[in-house]
Measured scan of single mutants.
Amino acid sequence: DTINITLPDGKTLTLTVTPEFTVKELAEEIARRLGLSPEDIKDTHNGKTLDPSLTLAEYGITPGSTITLEIK
C-alpha cells in the first residue's frame, strides 16, 4: 500500500507502508530518503501534527492518503 508525502517544495514522494507503521517509522523512512534527520521532520494530516507513537491506522491514514511534510 502506498501513501503520498507532500514535500515543502510541492513535490510528492510516494512511500510503501502498512497501516501498522508508526508515525515515527514513517518519519525515519522519509528522513532516510531525503537525507535528513528524523527529528527534523514534522508530519501533518488534515491540519493536525501527528504523534510519533501512534500508527497510521490510528489516524485513519489509508492507501492513497496524503501527508504533508514540514521541515523543523
Rank of each mutant, 00 (worst) to 15 (best):
I3V: 07
L7K: 01
L26N: 00
P19C: 04
T44M: 13
A27T: 14
T2F: 13
K11N: 12
T55D: 01
D51M: 03
G60K: 02
I71C: 07
G47T: 02
L26Y: 04
L69Q: 01
E25G: 04
T22M: 02
T55E: 02
K48L: 14
E28R: 05
S53Q: 09
T68H: 14
S65D: 11
E25R: 06
G10H: 05
I71T: 06
L13A: 03
L7Y: 05
G35M: 05
L69K: 00
P52I: 09
T18E: 05
H45P: 04
L36Q: 06
L36I: 15
T14S: 10
P38A: 12
E70N: 09
V17L: 07
Y59T: 07
A31P: 00
D51W: 04
E20H: 12
L54V: 08
E25N: 09
S37A: 12
K48H: 15
L56A: 01
K48V: 15
S53N: 14
N4C: 07
D1F: 14
R32S: 08
V17E: 00
K24Q: 12
N46L: 12
T6N: 14
V17A: 03
E28N: 08
I71P: 05
K42M: 14
T66C: 06
T22H: 01
L36E: 05
N46Q: 05
T44Q: 11
K72L: 11
D40N: 11
F21D: 04
S65L: 06
V17F: 11
T49E: 14
Y59F: 08
N46I: 10
T14N: 07
S65N: 06
S53V: 05
D43W: 15
G35H: 08
L56M: 04
D40T: 12
S65M: 15
S65V: 09
L34Y: 06
E29V: 08
R32E: 08
P8M: 10
I3Y: 03
P8D: 06
L56D: 00
K48R: 06
T14L: 09
L26P: 00
E70Y: 08
T16G: 08
I30Y: 01
P8V: 09
K72D: 13
K48D: 13
T62Q: 11
I30L: 11
L54H: 08
S53G: 08
P52Y: 11
G64I: 02
E28W: 07
I61D: 00
L13C: 06
P38N: 07
E25C: 06
K72V: 11
A57I: 10
V23Q: 00
R33E: 10
P38L: 14
N4E: 07
T16E: 10
E58T: 04
S53D: 09
N4W: 11
D40M: 12
L50W: 15
T14V: 14
T2M: 08
I41N: 01
L50G: 04
V17R: 00
D40C: 10
D9W: 12
I67T: 02
P63G: 09
T49M: 07
K24G: 15
D1L: 15
T22Q: 02
E28L: 08
